[in-house]
């Protein structure tokens, strides 16, 4: 048996203690602890469904071991949202129908949010570069691009602040 240990980590602003064996991925660990918004797809870095942010950087949680996030801040889709005022990305995805089955959506929003902090006014090329690790089998991406641009506009105008 791989050694099991408790790791302290902040998930979406809440301090947590998660127990995990050495060989558990962050993806499996988060889902085992109830974070079902983190989706499991390919489990090998190809699809981006499992994307989360560690200290603000988007990574694939299927290629991260749970122990690696000891002492760090993990943000999932749930951490972007706010019950009173949905994140501008969420509002824009709803408005533009950029969600069909929704399986890719949590990962896409995590990737898009990280990009928007670096590039507040992204071009199509910027969005393509930021989303090249996220597969969507439903939408054809057009509406996703439109929604991200609208969210960028809202954020630039100072909208979506908590």
């Amino acid at each position: 048996m791989s050694l099991e240990k408790a790791i302290t980590v902040e998930i979406n602003g809440v301090a947590r203690e998660l127990s995990a064996p050495a060989n558990e991925t962050l993806l499996d660990c988060l889902r085992r602890h109830g974070q079902f918004e983190v989706k499991s797809g390919c489990e090998k870095g190809d699809c981006g469904a499992c994307a989360v942010q560690i200290d603000g950087e988007a990574v694939d949680s299927c290629l991260t071991l749970a122990w690696m996030v000891e002492g760090k801040k993990v943000t999932t889709l749930e951490g972007l949202n706010d019950a009173d005022s949905p994140h501008p990305l969420i509002a824009a995805f709803l408005e533009h129908g950029a969600v069909q089955c929704g399986y890719c959506t949590p990962g896409i929003m995590i990737a898009a949010e990280a990009m928007l902090r670096d590039i507040p006014d992204p071009t199509d090329d910027d969005i393509a570069l930021a989303l090249s690790g996220n597969l969507c089998r439903c939408t054809g991406y057009t509406k996703i691009f439109t929604a991200i641009k609208q969210a960028a506009e809202v954020l630039r105008a100072g909208g979506g602040d908590d």
Partner: peptide, 12 residues
């Protein structure tokens, strides 16, 4: 680097 994997892979 610009044509390497996707954003998440590039960060790792």
């Amino acid at each position: 680097a610009r044509v390497f994997g996707g954003q998440m892979v590039r960060n790792q």
